[in-house]
Design a protein around this nucleic acid. Structure first.
Lengths: 229, 229
DNA sequence: GCCAATAATATACATCTGTATAGACAAATG
DNA sequence: CATTTGTCTATACAGATGTATATTATTGGC
């Protein structure tokens, strides 16, 4: 079924991009930037990274002529960056949810990881993008993903310090612990995303134990005053 | 300078693939599987993943006609998997040697991670391949990389158990600890790979501390009989 | 020296890519 | 109405890619 798409013709429809009367002259765009982004988003999958999408392919998916693409983006790279931005915002929402639960729930670790893994299923495409494009792809991609990860780390670090005070269980090198946790969660998420969903629960349990190891170790290091070197 | 390679013609040379007299009739191969793998290895770089290499490109690099490629591999995918295999084996050998070189002032953890991070700057790009190809590429690629990671984990796991006995410091869930360490080291490696080399040392130190957290935590968990749930 | 076997090559083709150019279409304005 | 203006589409082209087919080159054995 992946052979020839039925070549739907795009006639000027009611749901055009620019609102019916916008003061500007000229033919109204039949499609918006966001529509193109959505089309690209529909093409990325378990085995397609953004960088492998071709301009023509995206145009086909969006049902426009290849050249019309240039009206909205200079490159496919430019579209990709917009897509990463979008994914980054989605990730922030996920993190926010995780933090919210963490503040309500007692077990920060468990609830955070649960939230993350849940969203893995919901915002699947975005997570795909962040997890994949962070390792492959251009420099811009990687920096965008790094930025989001750092954001995650900072928030987590604050949480760890707060919890250490609350529980009266001081923790060594909270920033490092936060970084370790973040990277590990993402790595486990990347591993999980390729597995059938029924395995996600097991991965979640594994991850939780791993994070407990990190926290327990960080606590022990301050208790025994172990030198990190 | 990346425009037109000088099209070196390949005439049957002394260093042919098959040894001079091998009992078989017919023209001797001018190139071996390994030569092709090496050519591909020379093409992967910071921003080139195996999946983006074209057959013709590899053939060009190896100075053979495109069709000669088929004498050695069915696909570029087949070559890629062989390459992943090679990278995994080479890297495991390097790390394994590092483990045995561990001494009193340079712990197993430290020397292993040192060896690992050294590979970031190494001429051979074995590490690059495993870091990148795990998240991109076809299902087969990912499974190949997963397999290599599992090898790492297994070797590390028996080492952890051995060390626990030697140091009389039992460890909880050694398999999980091994998995956490492996994934974390690879994640940190992936983060470091894009940074200028002078930052590698700092990443190394961070990683060592992180791993100590994991080990210390796993030990503490068995000591206090903490339930993982 | 001739033959069979094997490998490497040359040529060709259909397909896909990004993009240049030119013209058709649809809106707002006069 | 015609004009202007911005967006669309059609066509075309050069380059790259995977691969099918046919040809040439080099070896060992008789």
């Amino acid at each position: 079924m992946a052979t020839k798409s039925p070549v739907r013709k795009r006639v000027s429809s009611a749901r055009d991009a620019r609102p019916p009367a916008a003061g500007a002259a000229g033919r109204r765009p039949s499609i918006s930037r966001d529509d193109l982004i959505a089309a690209a988003l529909g093409l990325v999958g378990p085995n397609r990274s953004i960088s492998t999408l071709s301009l023509r392919e995206i145009a086909r998916e969006a049902a426009i002529a290849p050249n019309s693409f240039y009206r909205h983006f200079r490159d496919t790279d430019e579209l990709a960056i917009a897509l990463i931005d979008l994914a980054g915002r989605a990730l922030r929402k996920i993190i926010g949810e995780a933090r919210h639960r963490a503040s309500v729930d007692r077990s920060v670790i468990r609830s955070s990881v649960e939230a993350f893994m849940e969203q893995l299923g919901a915002e699947e495409k975005f997570l795909h993008i962040l997890l994949r494009e962070g390792n492959t792809g251009s420099e811009a991609f990687k920096r965008a993903v790094e930025r989001e990860l750092r954001f995650f780390e900072d928030e987590l670090c604050v949480d760890l310090i707060r919890l250490a005070k609350v529980n009266n269980a001081p923790i060594a090198e909270p920033a490092l612990a936060a970084k370790a946790i973040t990277r590990l969660v993402f790595a486990m998420g990347a591993a999980a995303i390729d597995l059938p969903r029924e395995h996600h629960a097991a991965i979640l349990e594994q991850t939780v134990v791993m994070l407990r190891m990190i926290v327990a170790g960080a606590q022990r290091m301050v208790a025994e005053n172990i030198q990190p070197g």
